[in-house]
Write a protein that binds this DNA or RNA. Structure first.
Length: 411
DNA sequence: TCTGGGGTCCTAGGACCC
DNA sequence: TCTGGGGTCCTAGGACCC
């Protein structure tokens, strides 16, 4: 028998990247801090401290814009390894509260606390225990939203920020949601917000007042999902899905934006080799084989195109992936200066349906050799082993963009 | 404003098959 | 010669999230 309603926690770390950086450099505490790169770099902010936000700085804002709005801000390069380490610590804490746990990004998670009352007490007590444990064990603040669906829990944690806990008791959903802007609904972004405003719908309460049929007539297939969300129900991929069912990644990709656009064919193809290598390495780490490979190409004017091809035999072999990506590139690049290149692998095959018999032996030889190379990299560092083309990319990157040849990675 | 990098999900059209 | 409808796979693009 399923419970009358679920008790779902959404745990969201406060200013996660900034807070982690503060642990490494306490001098940053209380200052206006922007994480993601230096003030004049081509790029966007990954995070901003609450102090910087007072000046209008927010994540995804171009660094140069942030520097204009908040000239005294301290700009800090990001450290993905640090964030992964702390994310793992966060996971350790959450794991003790419920096994039904799902990290949805590096700094937030859903925890299904349904039926844990005997162990952890009523929701608010459990939340405060969790809050304290998090602070004690990670030195980081989080905010916790509690509700009967993922959607409600997520909206609640946002309302609880910073460093707070908010519980919407079952039955109180409509009253809580009604005064909030539609933009607070996960999945409603700039575009959908504009469409809703054009219909005079500004608050979630306005949305809830419309009939599902009217919404379907005006917003097509998205209508019914909106109707559900306005009532605090999980829709789309969240509908009826259990928390903690991880079926692995859907895609693995790497991309690179040049600090100066280039139309040098050799430079570009060398970068494709490097990106393909990086994607393949992660495929092998996760024992995955990709059927679909996609090239992403962005020109100086931001025109972006993607071109994909599906292989007959799934692969995680550098040379095979690169050959496909290179063909796509040669067939589609018009010679203009390029701003960004990307390689994406998706449509993964199970180990079982992986290979026909005749392909098997050569493939396995390749895989063995490449796995050995991966282990060497782990042992001796990123640059120890590389295919010749990938090596060239690195050399060019360094000479073009880092004339001093400093080993420090960007970010 | 001059726009990163890593993802997920959804839609729509065309090919192809029955 | 003109003409069905459903199902699946593939590709391209776009909205959205952190």
């Amino acid at each position: 028998m399923s419970p009358a309603h679920r008790t779902i926690f959404h745990v969201d770390m406060d200013a996660f990247f900034v807070s982690v950086e503060e642990l490494f450099d306490p001098a940053l505490k209380g200052k206006a801090v922007v994480v993601g790169g230096q003030r004049h770099e081509r790029g966007v902010a990954s995070a901003a401290s609450y102090e910087a936000r007072k000046f209008g700085v927010h994540s995804a804002m171009p660094l140069r814009t942030a520097a204009k709005l908040c000239p005294h801000a301290i700009f800090v390069d990001g450290h993905p390894e640090r964030y992964r380490d702390y994310s793992a610590k966060v996971y350790q804490v959450l794991d003790r509260f419920s096994p039904k746990l799902e990290m949805v990004s590096i700094d937030e998670a859903y925890v299904d606390m349904t039926g844990t009352e005997r162990l952890h007490g009523p929701p608010m007590r459990a939340a405060h225990a969790l809050h304290e444990a998090m602070k004690a064990e990670t030195q980081l603040n989080c905010s916790i939203g509690i509700g009967t669906s993922r959607l409600l829990a997520k909206i609640c944690s946002d309302q609880a920020k910073p460093n707070g806990v908010l519980w919407i008791v079952p039955g109180g959903e409509a009253e809580f949601l009604a005064p909030l802007d539609v933009r607070k609904i996960p999945g409603v972004g700039k575009v959908m917000e504009k469409r809703l405003l054009e219909q005079g719908i500004q608050k979630i309460g306005d949305l809830a007042r419309h009939e599902e049929r009217w919404l379907e007539a005006n917003f097509g297939v998205l209508g019914p999902a909106l109707a559900g969300k306005a009532r605090g129900l999980d829709a789309g991929a969240w509908f009826d899905s259990d928390i903690g069912e991880d079926d692995g990644p859907r895609s693995i990709s790497h991309e690179h934006t040049y600090s100066v656009d280039t139309n040098d064919a050799q430079t570009l193809e060398a970068m494709l080799a490097r990106l393909s290598e990086m994607v393949c390495r992660r495929l092998r780490e996760q024992k995955l084989h990709a059927r679909t490979l996609q090239l992403k190409l962005r020109y100086s004017d931001f025109r972006t195109l993607t071109r994909a091809r599906t292989l007959e035999q799934p692969s995680s072999v550098d040379a095979e992936v690169l050959a496909t990506i290179r063909e796509l590139f040669r067939a589609n690049w018009n010679g203009d200066a390029v701003r960004l290149l990307g390689v994406c692998a998706s449509h993964f095959a199970d180990e079982s349906e992986q290979l026909s018999l005749e392909g098997r032996t050569t493939h396995e030889k390749w895989n063995q050799a490449l796995s050995a190379a991966d282990r060497m990299r782990e042992k001796f560092g990123e640059h120890a082993v590389s295919m010749a083309t990938g090596m060239k990319a690195r050399f060019r990157e360094r000479t073009h963009e880092n004339p001093a040849g400093l080993p420090g990675k960007k970010k």
